[in-house]
Design a protein around this nucleic acid. Structure first.
Lengths: 133, 133
DNA sequence: AGACCCTATGTGTAAATTACATATATGGGA
DNA sequence: TCCCATATATGTAATTTACACATAGGGTCT
């Protein structure tokens, strides 16, 4: 059966235009500042501006990043609760984050271009609110 | 056989983080300003900041947009060369473009948040160059 | 002890999206 | 005629995302 298309009948448009793999740089960015396990990352990231983070996806990405040598992990069995897999970023991971940053900057420019063309007709203006007195 | 992963051996990272369906709002935006056929759109858009536009993808998107009632088309057999399918945006298309705009604004904020956290360590700064004198 | 919930990490798989290759046709110029 | 630029389109593999589900530790309430 067919899944809901973007614009479904109830008018909710959940996730138009989210960039591919956007979780990747966000995760690496957090891991650059502090080591963390998946569940912890998930909570921090959900306060980042996402509607929701798919945990299955998040754990899968972590495993893939590890396979690619961009993060490393080890079990923490000492602290309370179920064992946690603590992730740390590697040098390769930081370099990869740099590449991501330049890519995001590039896309940022595209969005700006979009709004440059868009605004003349419909002055939506995302931030930087009006108040021209 | 497996396709190239993002970061391939020669260091070229073609398309990290390109947003999903980004062609859609760009195309609608252009169609809002003037009716056009696919080939024409492709050329204008390739000057927008994309490395390359997949024409198969572009034509497929146009057909899908038409199926969804966001654009309409008619053949132009009068002018030179092969027949062109001229597309026009509909009211539904313009509304859809609005939704896209707010979605892109939202993502713009996320990127800004990203750079707010990223910069303290690595002052990449996408635009708005330094010169603090 | 058993039921229940929160933490924590994963796998299975269908759907959606993108990338790459290829097919077809018109018309102009050499 | 052959080639090239224009113009539209399909086939299909690879990638990415979404949604469902599985497993397990440890605390609390009864």
């Amino acid at each position: 059966m067919e899944r809901n298309k973007e614009s479904n009948s109830n008018g909710k448009n959940a996730n138009l235009g989210t960039p591919k793999n956007f979780l990747v740089p966000i995760m690496l960015l957090h891991l650059r500042d502090f080591n963390a396990h998946g569940y912890e990352l998930m909570q921090k990231i959900s306060q980042f501006g996402f509607n929701a983070v798919d945990q299955g996806n998040l754990y899968r990405i972590l495993r893939q990043l590890e396979k690619d040598g961009k993060v490393t992990s080890e079990w923490d069995t000492a602290s309370d609760g179920p064992a946690k897999r603590i992730y740390s970023i590697t040098d390769a991971g930081e370099q990869y984050l740099e590449i991501w940053a330049s890519s995001l900057a590039n896309y940022q420019n595209m969005i700006n271009q979009f709004f440059n063309l868009y605004q003349p007709f419909f002055p939506f203006q995302p931030k930087e609110s009006d108040a021209e007195k």
